[in-house]
């Protein structure tokens, strides 16, 4: 499902002294099955952008076209759009409200007009995806679960709507290391099954490991756009956007200062590890 953002601008508090141009003439296209990281400092407009792509902010200028359907089109099929795009907000566990895990996850599917039986099927699949046992947890109150489990329920609630595009805003904030890794692996596997992923994150280290493309926003403008290796190769621009370099990239720089000839393509941890080991003569034989 492709996403086409065409010349989009957005202004908060229009025509008041408090006017803020949150987005200025943003255009890009995301192809089906991509994994895109959206980064930028606080106030760069990234959360405004994802709210527009999710269809939650309406009074913007320009066009956003999802799978050929324009949000601005009065005749657009809203239900279909809602079905296509799923959104996981920061701390999604704060959206839980039903008495049982099953009911909460079924909320979205039912709003799409599915009947009991179809919804139940969806719940089963979604719980399986996030790694919650259906029989064990279906009747449990979501409020009795641990923080990590609550988050799984919240995400299952979005996945049960079977979106083709999944938009995530800082999805791993507050999770412990194990939880973070499990979660990112889940997103990766959803992406491998063909789901288009848009992820906003402050964590560059995670993004370089998982994203195929990175879009950098700065003061409401599209500032950089490319593969993780391309984006983080331009150190000056990255600093200008007040972003941190990922650990691997900054370590590569330090190695270069020490006279190592580190290729520009190295951006992920595994690549760096292999490079160092082959340079210093380690072997994987044993």
């Amino acid at each position: 499902m492709s996403i086409k953002v065409d010349n989009v601008s957005f202004t908060y508090m229009k025509k008041t002294p408090f006017q803020v141009n949150a987005l200025k003439n943003i255009s890009f296209e995301i192809k089906d099955g991509d994994f895109v990281g959206i980064v930028g400092h606080t106030g760069s407009g990234k959360s405004t952008l994802i709210q527009i792509i999710s269809g939650l902010l309406k009074e913007y200028e320009g066009n956003v076209v999802i799978d050929g359907i324009d949000y601005n089109d009065k005749k657009a099929d809203r239900t279909r759009l809602r079905r296509l795009v799923g959104v996981v907000f920061q701390y999604p566990e704060y959206q839980l409200f039903e008495e049982t895990v099953e009911k909460d996850i079924a909320f979205g599917p039912k709003k799409l007009g599915l009947d009991e039986k179809e919804a139940e099927e969806r719940v089963k699949v979604a719980m399986d995806l996030v790694g919650l046992d259906y029989d064990m947890y279906r009747d449990v109150s979501p409020f009795q679960l641990s923080g990590g489990q609550k988050r799984k329920v919240a995400i299952a609630g979005v996945l049960a709507m079977e979106p083709q595009i999944l938009i995530l805003d800082e999805p791993i904030a507050g999770l412990d290391p194990q939880g973070r890794e499990n979660f990112l692996e889940l997103i990766k596997s959803l992406n491998e099954c063909g789901m288009t992923i848009l992820m906003v994150s402050h964590n560059m280290d995670n993004l370089v490991e998982y994203a195929k493309r990175i879009i950098v926003l700065k003061d409401g403008e599209l500032f950089m756009d490319g593969t993780p290796a391309e984006v983080f190769a331009d150190k000056e621009k990255v600093a200008e956007a007040s972003l941190n370099l990922p650990e691997v990239a900054s370590f590569c720089d330090r190695l270069r200062e020490k006279g190592f000839d580190v290729p520009d393509s190295i951006i992920r941890y595994e690549q760096l590890k292999d490079y160092i080991i082959s340079t210093v003569g380690g072997s994987y034989d044993d």
């Binding site: 941890y269 590890k273 160092i276 080991i277 003569g281 380690g282 994987y284």
Partner: peptide, 12 residues
């Protein structure tokens, strides 16, 4: 620490 661990694994 992770890098050192992985290097040690290969006998370095």
């Amino acid at each position: 620490a992770k890098l050192i661990r992985d290097m040690e694994k290969t006998g370095v």
